[in-house]
C-alpha cells in the first residue's frame, strides 16, 4: 500500500514539475513584447554596433585626404601576428630627405583584434571600424592598404 502511494505521489510531483516549467514557456508564448530576438540580416539598416566595437583596423583620413601616419613602425612592431606591414619611401622636401609611408598594409585575415596597434600608435593614426561582415570569396581581398591613394601626411603631426 505504501509503495502504491509513493508511486502516485512520484507521478504527481513529476507532472507538477513539468507544468511549472511549461508555465514559464507559456508566459512568453503570450507575451510577445518580452521576446528579444533580433532578425539579423533583415535589420541591417537599423543595426548599430557600439562605438568601440573592434571590427577592423582603419586609418581615418581628413576631407583633404590627409592621414596621421608617420611610418614609424611601432604598430608593426607591437602586432603579435604580423598583420601589419609598412612600406616606406623617401621624399625630398627642400633638399632634405624625409621618410614617408608608401603603403600601410593590413592583413585582416591574420588580425586577432587585440588592439595593441591602435593603443600604441604615437600619433593616433589608427582606429577601429565597426564593420563586422568580412566574409569574401577571394582571400586576396582581405589584405588591405589602409592609406588612401594620393594621401599625404597631416601637417599638424609632429615627427
Amino acid at each position: 500500500m505504501k509503495e502504491i502511494i509513493q508511486y502516485f505521489s512520484d507521478v504527481f510531483h513529476a507532472v507538477k514539475s513539468l507544468l511549472t516549467g511549461m508555465r514559464v514557456t507559456g508566459y512568453y508564448f503570450f507575451h510577445h513584447k518580452e521576446i528579444v530576438t533580433q532578425e539579423y540580416p533583415e535589420n541591417r539598416a537599423t543595426l548599430k554596433m557600439f562605438e568601440r566595437f573592434k571590427g577592423e583596423v582603419l586609418m581615418p583620413h581628413t576631407e583633404s585626404n590627409e592621414h596621421k601616419c608617420t611610418g614609424c613602425g611601432i604598430c608593426e612592431m607591437n602586432c603579435p601576428n604580423g598583420s601589419i606591414e609598412i612600406l616606406t619611401t623617401f621624399e625630398t622636401v627642400d633638399g632634405k630627405k624625409k621618410k614617408i609611408i608608401d603603403k600601410h598594409i593590413y592583413h585582416l585575415s591574420m588580425c586577432t583584434f587585440c588592439g595593441l596597434c591602435v593603443k600604441t600608435c604615437p600619433s593616433d593614426a589608427l582606429a577601429f571600424g565597426n564593420d563586422f561582415e568580412h566574409a569574401v570569396f577571394d582571400r586576396q581581398s582581405l589584405t588591405k592598404v589602409l592609406n588612401k591613394p594620393g594621401s599625404t601626411l597631416n601637417k599638424e603631426v609632429k615627427e
Binding site: 568601440r52 573592434k54 593603443k119
Partner: peptide, 24 residues
C-alpha cells in the same frame, strides 16, 4: 555581452586588461 562590447570593444574576447591596468 553588450556591457562588455560597449566598454571593451570585444564581446567574447575583450583583451581589455594590460599589465598595470586597462587598454582604455
Amino acid at each position: 555581452l553588450d556591457i562588455f562590447e560597449e566598454s571593451t570593444g570585444g564581446r567574447l574576447l575583450p583583451s581589455f586588461n594590460t599589465p598595470g591596468g586597462f587598454m582604455h
